[in-house]
């Protein structure tokens, strides 16, 4: 958790050295591939990872997620084509939350067909699930994962859901859709639905839910405070200047060495007395 929050703050504790926008995580340790920020590029990459796994006779599979809006990218078409041609052990998830910033899903072709139906044209298995039903999502993913592991082929899963909030913290949906729409969304909040279901079948109760909510909130608050000791974006505590030039290549070529020296020189000019903690 603290590593995730350090990344959000791009602070000196950030394992990604403050190079990526918030939540664009990467963790090889957890088999979590680096999030790009460019759209749908991850889809052929996931297929390639899955092909590599098959080439090495590995039993591991790949799963990737893409918004319904960016299925319009050519990369998604490439991913579906390569997945079917090589029978790659991959799950291609399409999160159809019906909004790509201000563009409704019709701009990705949703008025005439479903995203699951596209699977048919490629010869992929296609599923469409209620994306706000955690148990349905779990069942669909498990089916697709077992299918991939058995070398029975790739699966495209459309998760039909709704983006209640804005696209990002700088997005105000009232500029392009009715405020009522969110209230009228019929399929409900997935966490509430799971809670109600568990209470219904006698596995859970309101008191335990309340305690869990509080525990989670307290935990996030405490870890956030801890992470803030490593700094927050724009307030000094970042990785040292020279790290800007690392990892462009495995080794630093002469032109980056020169530029690195220049950056350090500029810093010394700007702060002749040095600047603590930065």
């Amino acid at each position: 958790m603290i590593e995730m929050i350090n990344q959000i703050y791009s602070n000196k504790g950030d394992k990604l050295k403050g190079r990526q926008l918030p939540i664009m995580y990467s963790s090889r340790e957890h088999s979590f591939f680096s999030i790009s920020g460019n759209l749908a590029t991850q889809t052929p990459q996931a297929v390639g990872w899955a092909m590599a796994s098959a080439i090495k006779r590995d039993s591991r599979i790949a799963a990737t997620w893409v918004g319904e809006g960016s299925t319009a990218e050519g990369d998604f078409h490439s991913a579906c084509t390569f997945a079917t041609v090589y029978n790659a052990p991959v799950i291609l998830n399409v999160i159809n939350n019906q909004w790509a910033i201000s563009s409704f899903s019709g701009f990705a072709g949703a008025e005439r067909t479903t995203f699951a139906a596209r699977a048919l044209g490629y010869g992929l298995a296609g599923l469409r699930v209620d994306g706000n039903d955690p148990l349905a999502v779990y069942a669909a993913e498990r089916w697709a994962a077992n299918r991939a592991r058995a070398n029975a082929g790739p699966t495209l899963i459309e998760h039909f859901t709704y983006r209640a909030e804005g696209h990002s913290t700088s997005d105000d949906p009232s500029g392009y859709r009715s405020a009522q729409e969110r209230e009228e969304w019929p399929l409900g909040d997935p966490v509430m639905r799971l809670k109600n279901h568990l209470i219904e079948i006698g596995e859970w109760d309101e008191d335990r839910q309340e305690a869990l909510d509080k525990e989670c909130v307290d935990h996030v608050k405490a870890v956030t405070k801890e992470a803030e000791k490593n700094g927050i974006l724009g307030h000094g505590l970042h990785h040292p200047f020279k790290t800007m030039f690392e990892d462009v290549f495995e080794e630093l070529p002469w032109h980056l060495k020169e530029q690195s020296e220049q950056a350090i020189h500029e810093r010394e000019t700007k702060f002749p007395e040095g600047r603590p903690n930065s």
Partner: peptide, 10 residues
């Protein structure tokens, strides 16, 4: 695109 994924695999 698949070559990027293959490289990430190893």
């Amino acid at each position: 695109g698949v070559a990027v994924g293959m490289g990430a695999y190893g």
